[in-house]
Nucleic acid binder design. Structure first.
Lengths: 191, 191
DNA sequence: AACAAGGTTAAGAAATAGTCTTAATGTAGT
DNA sequence: ACTACATTAAGACTATTTCTTAACCTTGTT
């Protein structure tokens, strides 16, 4: 199992000691995911927190007209889950789908809850992880309510240059909340 | 000091035992805040987490044209802070301002950090608190990228009926990302 | 290597969202 | 109760974004 990435991920928070590492690793399951494979589908209950070792995922909702709206991308060293579904144990209204062939480490809800109870450091680390995600999301809300599509696109390119290279423009358009056609116009204007 | 509200707030998470209650209360400072008074201004570093006992606040950014954009409201039994500024100890680009005469309980960053270290339950509780805020914010992002202004307004009314009554429409318009004039039109259409 | 599927660009018409202005109404503070 | 200021309303005008259709490119899969 490829555990180097996740261990050094935690090193950027409060590092895990040997026992904690072992207890974490014992609860992880490694999975290879193909492009376009789902790790969560609408109406399923989200049962795992997923750490991306290699590859890239998108989490999105599908509206009544069948259009996808990207809530989040997750590439290397990022966590992804439908936290609401995971927490409240209710069916998700989201999809999580691999955009690239990927390698992930998953921990089941109960195993994570056990870790929280056994080693408070996990509560601490995941508190800080989610605080950082919250900060990111809040700045995205600010963008959405205060900026033009042009500005949101430029900001996306600056904030996630690595993603911008890997993702097709349709996915970026869906993330910033415009149609692919309109993104094309925006890009044309810049030149 | 009015501590009933904050204690019963924690009862809806992991209840505090006597020692934890006491240690928390010892670190709280009660303040009366006038309407239009700021508890955070741009370029100041956010130094406290604030619990609203009575009243209502808005947190907003001001854009280059001088317009306000509401990121969050906080009424009774809600926490508010610029988490990014608090965490990273860097100047905030946000304002937190009382919309009504208010009563708050504030805890300084270092005191909260001490509580985290002394009693892991606080890590746990604030992890869950922020997870819930994250869920809320994520559904707001989805709204922003997938719904019309009309739908965002209706959703706001349904999701926060108590706030909708208390807030002037200008504030709601700023929250859902439209001009007050346009909100006025939307409301007229509904009748 | 070749095909199929999906992604990108284009361009005009239409709808949606927003600005600007003016004016009436409501509300807070002295 | 009065004054100043904030809020709501309404209409004309403008800008932004979507919709539709279609042709052309790229990329993944076999």
């Amino acid at each position: 199992m490829q555990t180097t990435a996740i261990i050094s991920f935690f090193d950027s928070y409060l590092s895990l000691d040997e026992t904690e590492k072992e207890e974490l690793i014992n609860r992880l399951r490694e999975r290879k995911i193909k492009r376009r494979q789902f790790i969560l589908q609408e109406n399923d209950t989200c049962k795992h927190f997923t750490f991306v070792v290699e590859g890239c995922f998108k989490m999105y909702a599908v509206d009544k007209n069948g259009y996808e709206h990207n809530l989040q991308f997750a590439a290397e060293n990022e966590w992804i889950a439908d936290i609401e579904s995971l927490h409240k144990e209710k069916p998700s209204h989201l999809y999580i789908e691999a955009i690239e062939p990927s390698l992930i480490l998953q921990i089941a809800k109960q195993d994570l809850w056990d870790l929280y109870n056994l080693y408070p450091k996990f509560d601490r680390n995941f508190r800080v992880i989610i605080e950082n995600k919250f900060i990111e999301l809040q700045s995205r809300v600010l963008q959405n309510i205060s900026s033009t599509a042009q500005e949101r696109y430029t900001t996306f390119l600056n904030q996630y240059p690595n993603l911008a290279n890997r993702l097709p423009n349709t996915q970026i358009a869906s993330y910033i909340g415009i149609t692919p056609e309109f993104l094309s116009k925006i890009r044309a204007e810049k030149l």
